Computed example of a mutant assay.
Amino acid sequence: MSERVGYRGRPGLAQALAAVRADDTLVVGKFDRLTRSVSDARHIGRWLTVRQQTHRGQQHRSGERTIADLAELFSGSRATVYRVLERRQSAHAPSRFGGL
């Protein structure tokens, strides 16, 4: 996990990001303490976003959250939530062409 996100050699950051749960807010006193470059910031942001979207999708599939609940949590529209859920579902769907 740490190699994909780009915080090699930073075990404290790896531990902090691993401890972040879906509904948590990670507070950092200074931005340069979180990331060493813009590229690292993008990787961390994408990883956290994908992780959050995956968790929200699981909540919806289990019936724990409605589309309206998710729209409120994401501070977005219902259409956006439907689009995100559809995108996540199609990304995990098996290929019609046997993996080609």
Rank of each mutant, 00 (worst) to 15 (best):
E64Q: 14
Q58G: 10
L17K: 01
S95E: 02
D24C: 02
G29Q: 07
T66R: 00
L26P: 00
Q53E: 14
Q52S: 14
F31R: 15
Q52A: 15
R88E: 14
V50M: 14
R42D: 07
H60W: 11
R4E: 10
K30G: 09
G29L: 06
A18M: 11
D23T: 07
S37W: 02
F74R: 12
A16S: 06
G98D: 04
R36H: 09
E86W: 09
S62H: 11
L70F: 04
R33T: 08
K30E: 13
R65W: 13
W47T: 13
V28G: 01
A79E: 05
G98R: 01
G57K: 06
G98C: 01
S90F: 15
I44A: 00
M1G: 13
Q52V: 08
H43Q: 08
L85Q: 03
T80Q: 13
R88P: 04
Q15L: 10
H55V: 04
E3C: 08
Q89R: 15
K30V: 07
R78C: 05
Q53T: 04
V28T: 04
E3M: 11
A19C: 03
R4A: 10
A19M: 03
R51H: 03
S75D: 14
G57N: 06
E86Y: 09
S62E: 11
V5H: 00
G99T: 14
A91W: 06
R10T: 08
R88L: 15
Q89L: 13
S77H: 02
A68K: 10
H55Y: 12
V81N: 01
R33M: 07
P94V: 09
S39A: 11
F74P: 09
R46W: 12
L13G: 06
L48P: 01
S39I: 15
G29A: 09
P11M: 02
Y82H: 10
Q52C: 14
R21C: 08
Q52T: 08
Q59H: 11
H55F: 12
A93Y: 03
A22V: 07
L73W: 10
G6H: 00
H60D: 05
Q59K: 13
F31K: 15
D32I: 04
R96C: 09
A16L: 06
Q89S: 14
V38W: 14
Q89E: 15
G12E: 11
R33I: 06
W47S: 14
V20H: 00
L17P: 00
R87T: 01
A91H: 07
Q58M: 15
G99E: 09
V27Y: 04
F31W: 15
V38S: 12
R51I: 00
A19I: 00
L73C: 05
V84L: 11
D23W: 14
A18E: 13
R61C: 07
G12V: 14
G45D: 03
R78H: 08
G76I: 01
S62R: 13
Y82I: 05
R46N: 12
R4P: 10
G99Y: 06
A19S: 05
A41P: 03
L70Q: 01
R87D: 10
E64D: 11
